[in-house]
Amino acid sequence: MKIKFHYIIIALLFAATGCKKDNYDAPSVKLSGHLVYQGEQVNVEFNQVPFQLYQPGFGLSGPINGTFDQDGGYSVLTFAGNYKFTISANQGPFLWKEVSAGKRDTLAINLTGNQTVDIEVMPFYLVRQPVFTKAGTNVNATFNIAKIVTDANAKNIERVTLYVNKTQFVSGSGDYNIAQTSLDGAALGSLTGISMSVAVPTIVPTQNYVFARVGIKIAGVEDMVFSPVAKVTF
C-alpha cells in the first residue's frame, strides 16, 4: 500500500498544535499549621471550626473556606500571594483578637513557598495531662483542666464529656461516638485530678481497641475544646 505522506504530516501538525498549554497551573503552594496556645496544640471538633482565607486585590473578594481537624490542624493548597487569615465571630472555643467590637482581626500571611503557620489563639480552657486506661469493659480517664482566660471574658464550664468511638473521629456529633458520659460543670469542684469512666458497648464487628477523648463544653460557646485522641487497647 502506498503511504500517503501528506495525511501523516497533517496528523502530526494537529498533534503538535494540540500541545499548546490550554490550562492554568494547579495550586501548588501548601499552607498548613495548627491552632496553638503557647506552643501547645488546641484540639477541637472535626470539621466544625471554620476559618477564612482572603486574598485581597483581585476585584471581587470571597474567602477560601476551610475547617480545622481534630488536632487543630489545617492545610490549604493554593497559589503564592498575600493572604489574610481570620476566624468568624463566635467560632472556636477560644478568643480571637478584635480590632473593634465585631471587627475580627486578621493575620497577614505572605505565601511564597510551602509554609507552616501556627495560629496562636487564647482558649478558654485546656485539658492537661489526660490519661486514658482500660478497666474491665470501661474506659477511665483522669485529667486536669487549666483555665486559661481569667479576665472579664472568662466563661464557666457547662459540662465535661468523655467520648469513646470505634474510629479515630471522636466527638459528640452523629456517629462520632459509641459511648459518652458527662459531668456537670457545677459538680466539678476542683479542676485537677478529675476522673471519669464510661462503659464501652459491644462493638460489631469485634475490635479490641477504642479511641477516647474528653471535651469541655464552655457555657455560651458553641464549639468544645478537647484533649488529644488516645487509643485504648483491651
Binding site: 468568624s88 463566635n90 467560632q91 456529633s173 458553641e222
Partner: peptide
Amino acid sequence: TGANRFQLG
C-alpha cells in the same frame, strides 16, 4: 446514620 445538628450559624 446521621443525626441532625443545627449550628448557631
